[in-house]
Structure formats: C-alpha cells, structure tokens
C-alpha cells in the first residue's frame, strides 16, 4: 500500500525535477530572468572580445576602441547616450561625473578613461557633443564624448549588446549601463551607472 502510494508520486516528482531543471538552465541558475541580466552575466563570465570600433570624439578627432586600441592598456568605461535625452542620460551623466571624481580620488584615473558614446550620430554632431561635454564637465582628460559613424552604429550597438528603441516622442529608450572594456578590448563587466562601488571594484581587479 505504502509502496503504491510512493509510486503514485513518481510522475509528479519527475515533472517537478524536469520543470525546475529546465528553468534553472534557461535562467543560468535563476540568476538572469531578463535579457539585461543575461547580458551582464555573459560579459562577466565569458569576457567577449569586442570588434574594433572607430569613433569621432567631441573635438572631431578619431578615437579607437577595441583590440587595436589597447596600446596604452587603459581600461575604458563605456556608456551609451543621446545628448537630446531629457531624462536617463542626464542623470547618467551625473553618475559618470561622480565616478570620474572617485577615480581621481583613488588615483585610478591614470589607467582608466570614461567614454560616453552617442547612438544618435545624425543629431549628435561634434558641436552637439561638445555642448553635452560642457554641461557635464567632460573635458576629455578622463571623460570623453564620442559618436560612431552612421554606418558603424549598428555594429557598435550589437557589439555591446545594447538595445535602443524609439520612444515615439522623437527620443529613445535604451540600456542605461556602464560597460567595462579592458586594455585588450574585452567586455569584462556591465554595471548600473550608479553602481560606482561595483565599477571601481571591477576596475581595481582588472588593472
């Protein structure tokens, strides 16, 4: 009788094991329920190599990012913005300014640069980038604002795994995150822009 009861439980236990197992695998052990979570986990775990990017900075100079940029071996902290953004990027800009000050305080600014990349290269010409730089105190010493060419935009966005969608009001919604790129052009971590301690720890571990 008891044995028969236990046998009755077998299919349910098998279903539970199968179901929980599939969900476990599908969410990397319940750590990544969202695409953003999966993206961050992937960067931290497999540190994918980024393709080489050529950008134009706020002064109109060429700026390289990726494997062949690592001559100086600097870690680059990349965020994505569009300068006409009324909300997220302005707050994000404040976060980056705070991060720059902390880097200076900790004397890490020699090996680290901050880079805000516009994904709206048509409206964000260098003059517009300079305006944003002045507003947020990005003087190019540690923190630089840049844009890809319109043709390269897709490969930059895809390379970082960023998703940009029009908000229907002429603006965009996008991942507000800080991407850590090491001196060899590998994407080694992705953090919230206000997670300054997390970023600093990653920078210290990497340099």
């Amino acid at each position: 009788m008891a044995k028969a009861k236990i046998r009755e439980l077998f299919p349910v236990c098998a279903a539970l094991a199968l179901g929980i197992g599939v969900l476990w695998l599908a969410t990397d052990g319940f750590r990544a329920l969202t695409e953003e979570g999966a993206r961050r986990l992937h960067a931290a775990k497999s540190k994918p190599k980024l393709p080489a990017f050529v950008l134009e900075d706020m002064n109109g100079d060429v700026l390289r990012l990726g494997p062949d940029s690592g001559k100086d071996g600097k870690t680059t902290l990349v965020t994505f913005i569009y300068t006409t953004c009324p909300t997220l990027c302005q707050a994000g800009g404040g976060d980056i300014a705070k991060l720059r000050d902390r880097l200076r305080e900790m004397r890490l600014d020699g090996g680290v640069r901050l880079l805000s990349v516009s994904f709206d290269p048509v409206r964000d010409h260098p003059q517009q980038l300079r305006l944003y730089a002045e507003q947020h105190g990005a003087d190019g010493a540690v923190w630089t604002i840049a844009r890809p060419s319109a043709e390269a935009l897709g490969s930059v966005i895809d390379g970082f795994g960023v998703r940009v969608i029009p908000d229907g009001w002429g603006g965009y919604q996008h991942n507000s995150a800080l991407h850590v790129v090491d001196g060899e052009g590998r994407l080694t971590g992705i953090f919230d822009t206000d997670d300054i301690d997390g970023v600093l720890n990653a920078v210290r571990d990497g340099t």
Binding site: P11, L18, V22, A26
Partner: peptide, 26 residues
Amino acid sequence: EADANALTLLGVFAILFWMLPRYIDA
C-alpha cells in the same frame, strides 16, 4: 490521476518559462 498531475505541472512550467522576460525579448 498521478500522470495527469505530472502533465499539468509540466504545462505550468511551460507557462512559467514563457513568463520569463528574457525569452519574451529573445
């Protein structure tokens, strides 16, 4: 009934899977 219970649970797990924002995005 034991098999029906198990199948229903599998159906529920399939619902849970498709409620993950990660796979709606994907």
